[in-house]
Write a protein that binds this DNA or RNA. Sequence first.
DNA 1: TACAGTTGCCTGAACGTTCAGACAAGGGAG
DNA 2: CTCCCTTGTCTGAACGTTCAGGCAACTGTA
Lengths: 213, 213
Amino acid sequence: MVRARQKNGKDRHQEILEAAARVITDRGLAETRIQDIAERCGVSPGLILYYFESKDRLLVEALTYANDKYYLAQARDLRRLDSARDQLSRLIDLSVPGLLPDFERLEEWALWIEIWVRALRDPSLAKEAEVLDRRWRQSIADIVRHGRRTGEFDGGEDADEIGRKLGALIDGLAIQVLMNDTQVSPEHMQRMCLEVAASLIGFELEPATSAST
Amino acid sequence: MVRARQKNGKDRHQEILEAAARVITDRGLAETRIQDIAERCGVSPGLILYYFESKDRLLVEALTYANDKYYLAQARDLRRLDSARDQLSRLIDLSVPGLLPDFERLEEWALWIEIWVRALRDPSLAKEAEVLDRRWRQSIADIVRHGRRTGEFDGGEDADEIGRKLGALIDGLAIQVLMNDTQVSPEHMQRMCLEVAASLIGFELEPATSAST
DNA sequence: TACAGTTGCCTGAACGTTCAGACAAGGGAG
DNA sequence: CTCCCTTGTCTGAACGTTCAGGCAACTGTA
């Protein structure tokens, strides 16, 4: 029980960040009040400001914290797979909002859009967002490089360039899916991402290990 | 001068919408106050609520109004060109934030991101956004169809599908450019869009009529 | 033309609410 | 007791919305 206090303190910090992320995804960044976050934690509003110097700071930290959490979970998930083809397919599946029941990602995408809109007027947040975003595009490029080392992929252009293109495509399509666009279902998005990936990297789609219809 | 009164009324309505759009792009949707809009028009805050039943209604109308205005300007611009290749290249140029000094489009893209974040929690706005968005993807598909009729393009997949893919790619890349991502400059975005378009539609890039490094 | 009545545009102040942040006191562990 | 965590209350400011009224342009009548 020596660290009971400190541990509590640390837990509180994290607990507030997670509560903040939840509230932001539920109500939206603009509609998030300190009291909402406090209620989600079961504490008083005053405590929130005891741990974070201001509401603004808390919100920004919550956005990047949540994104970090999701990214690490994804990286862990992908590392279980050996085949680059499987990794790529899995990465796409994980990126499509609402496709996999266990990894809907709706929260994460909602947070990303909140980050974008805020980063438009907050250059420091834009810098942080770029770091997170580059890491995410990097993971695509790494899969491509891995596939080329193992011989699964050959030809195609610069891996980083593929990461940028495929990453942007996924961003753009995810927005449509999140908006419940009637012309872009999660399955449709998944198929389009795979097709473009195959075209960019230069592999055939038919003998894919997953992804049908 | 019979319609002097009505004309004034109509001008005011539009004037307020345009002022609202300006303020939203400057300060962001969340930070936009009725008084800011009133000041931009040089009128009193009360007048804003005289023309619009609530702040919320005004904001939503301003978002779609501004988008509509920009779309019509783009459509007019594209109609001047005959060649499908030129139209496609011009559409891409027009879509890249900050590429053309006369059509920076920074405002329009900022408004789009605001629409997205709000549409996440406002299904009726999401519906309106889908209509606007479909029209925009349609214009890509129409260019492809036009090129196939004239024989400029041949092969490639369904034109609507190309519109969805290219549209999503442009959305995703535009976000990076807007965030001042150091890895994605306007020129870089332009090149990537053209490359993917060439790949999807099936034409060679070299003899392009425009677009160079 | 002159005048009175009507209509619509616009103002500025006031109201009620909401919320971030400040503050001081409570309480439990060491 | 002492220190850190936590609470509940308070406040000052900001904001959306309302409203009574003023003003100017227009209409119809004589």
